[in-house]
């Protein structure tokens, strides 16, 4: 069997086993966002977004470009500041401390510690080009979690194996296809044993023939019980893997529900209009 065949028939499996099982229970609600407000200068991007995600749940956020999906996702690990509302992950406020009834931005060190619990996968992969696939995955566990190098290597190899890229362990990102890069990026985020995974349009920078291999990994992850928020327009994936779909429009979540219900029978006219364009 050639390498190419091997890739195509690879079925991701036991992804979470590679990092020691599903994340430890930490209360039922993993994400609690209430009334999140965000401005870019004068532009009002998020106008009170409220969303709760339970443990082991996969929520897909859809909506037209410019509706604030990606911005909202980036607020959840405080890559963006928020100007109103609050976001808590595992019961801890993200990016802010409560002082005298007001929210004050937290210290850099605390924010960094919170981000360790939140994995993020980017549209443009953002792998570290000067490190090999294996080093990309090992970097944060060793440098941030202070995991012994041997242990980090074992975990990283197990993760690479499970996303079907064991044979690319020493390749640099420039030597990988887009789909392969994104799978390494998912493994890199998983290596930190996050309680929550955020996916920011993980397949929209990929050539069509590579979308499947990435979605397979994500689907497997959802079925294994990872808590995930995914910004994506992959309707097939939403049907297959999502517990809930949220439709965002003009900075608010207009409607949410189970994929079958929302896709077949949308209530809001804006949702209907959007779905009629993409389905």
């Amino acid at each position: 069997m050639t390498v190419k065949d091997d890739q195509r028939h690879h079925q991701p499996h036991d992804l979470l086993q590679a990092i020691g099982g599903a994340p430890a229970p930490a209360g039922d609600l993993v994400v609690e966002a209430t009334g999140v407000q965000k401005y870019f200068g004068r532009l009002h991007v998020l106008k009170g977004v409220t969303l709760s995600v339970r443990r082991r749940e996969t929520v897909i956020v859809i909506g037209a470009s410019g509706s604030g999906k990606t911005t909202f996702l980036r607020c959840i690990n405080h890559l963006e500041k928020i100007q109103g509302g609050r976001i808590a992950v595992n019961g801890h406020l993200i990016g802010y401390r409560e002082g005298n009834g007001k929210l004050v931005e937290d210290r850099e060190r605390n924010i960094a510690a919170q981000r360790q619990e939140i994995g993020m996968v980017f549209q443009r992969f953002n792998l570290f080009p000067h490190l090999t696939a294996l080093e990309n995955i090992m970097e944060a566990p060793v440098r941030v979690r202070r995991m012994p190098e041997g242990e980090a290597r074992t975990t990283a190899e197990a993760l690479l194996e499970r996303v079907g890229l064991a044979f690319k362990r020493d390749a640099y990102p420039a030597q990988l296809s887009g789909g392969q890069q994104q799978r390494v990026a998912i493994a890199r985020a998983l290596a930190m044993k996050p309680a929550l995974m955020l996916f920011d349009e993980p397949t929209s920078a990929l050539d069509p023939e590579m979308i499947g291999e990435v979605l397979d990994v994500m689907e497997e992850l959802a079925h294994e019980g990872m808590t995930m928020i995914v910004v994506s327009h992959e309707m097939g994936f939403a049907r297959e893997a999502a517990d809930r779909v949220a439709f965002m429009d003009d900075g608010v979540i207009l409607e949410e529900g189970e994929p079958a219900t929302l896709f077949e029978n949308p209530q809001n006219p804006r949702t209907k209009e959007f779905l009629s364009k993409i389905l």
């Binding site: 360790q116 953002n126 570290f128 970097e139 941030v144």
Partner: peptide, 11 residues
């Protein structure tokens, strides 16, 4: 994006 990726890993 490199700095963002690094920070999102808790660095």
């Amino acid at each position: 994006g490199q700095l963002e990726a690094a920070r999102s890993l808790g660095m």
